[in-house]
Design a protein around this nucleic acid. Structure first.
Lengths: 147, 147
DNA sequence: TATTGTTATACTCTATAACTATA
DNA sequence: TATAGTTATAGAGTATAACAATA
């Protein structure tokens, strides 16, 4: 690897690799519930913050509102989420899990958490905390400026 | 976040987030060269290991040979890579960068490396090395077993 | 028979932008 | 005018599987 010398670059390459492998595992793990990663993400967001609008969801997921619309379409087709009326703004939709959606995420989320814990168990508790701190720092630096 | 307590899970969520943001930035950075991330990855692989087969490339990229076929189609359409004959196995293609492809990657790779260094600069040199070590450990644990 | 590459299908996700209905 | 959501288009990536040529 001729031009590759610095730890930062190598760290980034490994981050891609780890993310890639984890994503494949996670995708397979969630497929058992009929969920894609993006759909799981939506359900978790609505689980944590019921009643947000599609616009708010788009901002949280760093995705366009057009994409959110399609995502919600697909999830609603399964009957896991519904669009409600905003009492004060008739343009907006309030998103909420249905009973089926709540049931699904209450089963899928703990299973997914346990799965992730199992993957991360290769690192000691202390190392997991260090990793978290470093990633938090990186994330914060991205938010601070738009290099 | 009710069920979310452990550092491992939080670390994973932040890893997703960091990867996501970096990928967006990287995608934008590479678009200046007319490259997607996957295509850049292919060019880098062929830069480092000229003359590999499509099958070998698929294994390195953790992707099916059918996908590699399409990827190479798109990159070859730009004239950056060519399929050569394998002297001993007429089924196989040997992949090589064209002169244009070499020129492109020799320009895009250092620029991308510099871009990544800039993103990682939020961490000290020591922290970058720690991050690298932790991600390497995780990556190795994924390779060891298929949990 | 097994393997390399090709082709075809179908789906998800993404970006972009025009469109509507409200505000 | 601006905003929330919708729709349409186009492209990339992925998975899967059937297929041809060759081993």
């Amino acid at each position: 690897m001729s031009g590759i010398r610095h730890a930062g670059l190598l760290a980034w390459l490994h981050l891609i690799k780890v993310n890639d492998k984890m994503q494949r595992k996670a995708t397979a793990q969630l497929a058992a519930y009929g969920l894609t990663l993006a759909q799981f993400d939506v359900l978790v967001q609505l689980h944590l913050a019921p009643g947000i609008t599609q616009q708010e969801l788009a901002e949280r997921m760093l995705v366009s509102k057009g994409n959110v619309c399609g995502l919600i379409d697909r999830i609603a087709a399964h009957g896991w989420v519904e669009r409600g009326c905003h009492p004060e703004d008739r343009r907006a939709n309030l998103l909420n899990l249905t009973a089926a959606g709540r049931e699904l995420i209450e089963e899928a989320l703990p299973a997914h958490e346990e799965f992730v814990q199992r993957q991360m168990a290769a690192l000691s508790d202390g190392d997991q905390r260090v990793l978290l701190a470093l990633l938090r720092e990186l994330d914060r630096s991205f938010s601070r400026c738009e290099h």
